[in-house]
Amino acid sequence: MISIAVLGEGYLFLIGKAILLLIVIPAFSMLIGYSFLLKMMSHMQDRLGPMEAGPHGIFQLLADGLKFLQKEDLMPNGSDRFIFKAAPIVMLVSTFLLYVVIPIGPHMVLENLHTGIFYVLGVSSISVIAILMAGWASSNQYSLLGALRAGGQLIAYEIPLVLSVVGVIIESGTLSLQGIVKAQANGNLFGLPIRNQYLISQFIGFFIFLISAQAELAQTPFDMPLAETEIVAGYMTEYSGFRFLLFYLSETATAFALSAIASTLFLGGWAVPFIHGTLAQVIGPFVLLAKTMLIAFLIFWFRFSLPRFREDQLQAFAWKFLIPLGLVNILITAIFKVAL
């Protein structure tokens, strides 16, 4: 009887943690959306951006969200209705699953899976299926074109993403994100006590990871799937109202999650060199947040500065440059690991 009671509480705890994400993910999504998509873009284009809703327009996205709820739920003729409805939800599931393994403190992680980063790479590719579903079900030529472009792009850039992570795994010897953070917190470089060393020893990996993350998020140098001057809005053309909001939420939340994973892998995550114990527990989440915002800043900085690639340049860049570079990086890392 006792074991059943404990199990019951365990279930409640698990459900509680899952529901916590419902607050965390929209909050971070709005943080990214407000600070980068609204304000940073506006200031880079020499304008103020939204100023009316709340002080400096901080409630703009909340107001937008409420407005989206009041939009009529439209579905095009000849669309596959079930798949059309399911696509944004599948996208959101992929985003939520990313947040499960990101550690924010010495003992603070939703589920410390042993497969860690491998799991992250797996669930992040679910979004390809969601995009293809959305494009296919819309019965719109633009949507289909956008979805195929997105499919081709996401699978091409998934390989460099995976290869860039392998270098970090070789150095740390673990797949668990918590383990990777600890390996960096106690790490050294060529025998010297330099902490958070992966930024230096894996700088090629970091470079590849950033570019691939940019492409996985379909941010501007790689935004052919959504290219508004060519194919309206790609796979999102037929979506409106709350379903569109789900895509939007998932895009910004995935940007935050991938930035957090990049800072965990290459910048040392929640750890600060030479700080341990309770203090690390307290400042950990804030350190991770600062590093994540730094990476997100880089992603959106490139987004607002660079023009769009052509489709052939995109594929050539992934297959002919990033993948060979990733393989070379793995071999060099392994040689150093074996030799030293």
Binding site: K17, L22, E111, N112, F242
Partner: peptide
């Protein structure tokens, strides 16, 4: 551990269905 992952996958489905 993976039960927790399953619940996390369930939450957005329930949330979107309810909100819609």
């Amino acid at each position: 551990n993976y039960l927790g992952v399953f619940f996390v996958a369930l939450v957005p489905v329930v949330f979107s269905a309810l909100t819609l």
